[in-house]
Simulated assay, not measured.
Amino acid sequence: MPDDTDLNPAEQTSSTSDAPEAEQTKTSPAEPLLQLALKDLQARRDALDQEIQDLTQRKQQLEAELKASFAGQSDAIARRVKGFQEYLGGALQDLVQSVESLELVVQPLVVQPSPLDQLDQQAASSQASSDAPIAAAVAVADTFKPDARLIRDALERFQQQPDVYADPWNLRRSIDARDIGLLEDWFFNQGGRGAQPSRGTRPRNILVSAALIAIVGELYGEQFQCLVLAGGPERLGEWRRGLQDALGLGREDFGPNSGIVLFERPEALVERADRLEERGEVPLILIDAAERTIEIPVLQFPLWLAFAAGPSERFEDDDFL
């Protein structure tokens, strides 16, 4: 009997190709059933889609009829009324809160005064206006009243023998009775703001200014800066040398970030004083006797002293210029 391996290749190929045909012959009877089932499902789906469309159209028709009917209109009106009611309630609550926050003030009853009352009022106002400068002067004069003891002790000490070895910013020279009187008037009568007659020469004015700087330094500590206005480099140099000698200062004590700043123009001085006040510091303004006028903005600052030159000083200054 021949073995399977003895078959030739052609026979093997024919046997393998007959297998799918046999399987296809076996499955072919089921295909008509599947086709019928699919057609039935498709027909049912189409019928359902048609019913859905019909129901949707019916729903829309019913909604339109409901809106057109009295019941539908009543429902819409009720919804609108309810919304307006809620809005009105909220508005009333806001109105109540606003009324509660108001401060009700009773309007005063205005009565037209008689001519006699008007005369009395005019007399009273004139009396008050005449008393106002006196009250203002008293208030200004009391500026340094709490520190009067300290100021008078310092002035008395300055009349004694000069202390040439005193610490910097303390007066190392002595002043006389006229200088004391000038400073007392500036402190206790002018309240630290005003002009004083010149002591005759610039060095003498510088010495009085040095005494003033020493006292203000004791009152305000490091919270003040001295601003000197003396137009011209020569005058400023004289001020710097005089203050250095009288207070024991060095060149480093003069400058924008130091205790004393020298100015040739009043505009720059006013600008610097404004910045000091913004930082909570006190500017002490000293004006040389050669300055003919005082700028109005200078008058707003709390501490300023201007030396008023005499006729001879003005004459010498004109020759110098």
Rank of each mutant, 00 (worst) to 15 (best):
A22Q: 11
S28N: 10
P32R: 02
A37N: 05
L41I: 14
Q42D: 06
R45E: 06
D46M: 01
D46Q: 09
L55R: 07
L55P: 11
T56G: 09
T56D: 07
K59Q: 09
K67Y: 15
S69A: 05
A78N: 15
F84R: 15
Q85N: 10
A91D: 07
V96E: 10
V96L: 12
V96T: 10
V99A: 12
E103D: 13
L104M: 06
Q107D: 13
P113V: 02
Q122Y: 04
A124F: 04
S126P: 08
A128I: 09
A128Q: 04
S129G: 04
D131H: 06
D131V: 08
A132R: 11
A135Q: 07
A135C: 07
A139G: 06
D142E: 15
T143P: 00
K145V: 13
P146V: 02
L155G: 00
L155R: 00
L155W: 03
Q159F: 06
Q160W: 09
V164M: 07
A166Q: 01
P168L: 04
W169Y: 05
N170W: 12
R172P: 01
R172F: 01
I175S: 03
A177W: 09
D179K: 06
I180L: 12
L182N: 07
W186V: 05
W186D: 00
N189L: 15
N189K: 12
N189Y: 14
G191I: 02
G192K: 06
R193Q: 09
R199H: 04
T201G: 04
N205S: 05
V208G: 04
L212R: 02
L212F: 07
I213S: 12
I215G: 00
I215D: 03
E218K: 15
E222K: 11
E222P: 13
F224G: 12
Q225L: 01
L227K: 00
A230H: 01
P233R: 09
E234L: 09
G242F: 02
Q244M: 14
Q244C: 11
G248Q: 00
G250F: 06
E252P: 03
P256A: 06
G259D: 01
F263D: 01
R265P: 08
E267Q: 13
L269E: 03
L269K: 02
V270G: 04
R272H: 08
D274R: 14
E277Y: 02
G280Y: 03
G280F: 01
E281S: 08
D288V: 00
I294V: 15
E295W: 13
E295K: 15
Q300N: 08
F301I: 05
W304M: 01
P311C: 05
E313A: 01
R314V: 05
D318Y: 11
